[in-house]
Design a protein around this nucleic acid. Sequence first.
DNA 1: CACCATACGGAGGGTCGCCTCCGTTTGCAA
DNA 2: TTGCAAACGGAGGCGACCCTCCGTATGGTG
Lengths: 201, 201
Amino acid sequence: MTTADGTAGSGGGGTLDVFARRPKRADARRNYEKLLAAAREAFAEAGVSASLEDIARRAGVGIGTLYRHFPTRQDLFESVYVDEVEALCRAADELAGLPPWDALAGWLRRFVTYTATKRAIAEALNHDSSVFATCRKAINTAGEPLLRRAQDSGAARPEASFDDVLRLVGGVTMYPFADPVQLERVLTMALDGIRVRPAAG
Amino acid sequence: MTTADGTAGSGGGGTLDVFARRPKRADARRNYEKLLAAAREAFAEAGVSASLEDIARRAGVGIGTLYRHFPTRQDLFESVYVDEVEALCRAADELAGLPPWDALAGWLRRFVTYTATKRAIAEALNHDSSVFATCRKAINTAGEPLLRRAQDSGAARPEASFDDVLRLVGGVTMYPFADPVQLERVLTMALDGIRVRPAAG
DNA sequence: CACCATACGGAGGGTCGCCTCCGTTTGCAA
DNA sequence: TTGCAAACGGAGGCGACCCTCCGTATGGTG
């Protein structure tokens, strides 16, 4: 899965194919990337409602150019989002070799940095566009096996659904942490909440 | 503490005194309350950037009236927020009679419904106005003893700070839950993350 | 009942972001 | 080098929201 580099090909089921859209001409391609970077930045700072004109400005590009590449705000938004999701899915593959709990925990840590920087973008998980649905599915496909494996091995609570876990862990970084040590502490608590509780005694 | 009803009096340290501002004339008072209710609703739905004109409309009141009562957006915002915080503080007092862990858990559950409905309002925890600082302090004063008690009794992790706990639990409801059963499940995990882990074996 | 301080409403001027449209520029293929 | 399809940029019209200002309405008191 996870269409990682330019070598296209829609792997298994619902791959994301961000590359379908990428323009051909050199300058256009350049601007496309600049816009994407600017947007990522702007969304992270100002939230979903970042000004499109500001994004164009950051990218050093006319507003018209922005609209040519991304006809709607949603388009731009989705492109940024899809990039993130792909990276996240790739991470799942890379962690697959670790012991069950470590793989899950590692991936969730990665998930946290994903939501941490892109807090704004996560707001869109509610919205209902087909792209978001696809991304959601991609995340599930990538992460759920990790949870299941951890559950089967007896490390993770059997009653926890994948969605439960994402909500618990994702919520942690809803507000930015000034202190990375604190983030670590809170994250540990969250992960412990997912683990099976040894019988008290 | 907790200036609960109209009987004023700034209790201990930094009480909140929402009542200082409440207008005198009957119609004014009525509109004030209507605006507050409308704002609570609007902020919960549309986030911090809800339109003031919309709030006035919801309240069935002219925009001028809104501005007379709440000269700045921040004023309105703070008033809603303060109301919430007061209720939350009151809850802490009411739970004080329970066993240590139950009191903490109960209060945190209350805290969750508070952040759940008022998600938007919580965004402001970052902002730095004196009112928000005071509220933050009030929440601490109300909730921290519950945590400490739970820790002293050996039920809660000793290394968890009060802020850690709020972030963990508050984050849970960052995104609305369609299914209350799921909320309960996730919340349980979060609370378990705060509890001391019995030694594995 | 009469008076007036208090409160109401909403028109309107200003700002800002959205998006379209079109004259100009530029990559690139022949 | 030349030509044209592709891409660029930004002026400008539009709508949403902000906030002020002032003529009108009204509660409450004497």
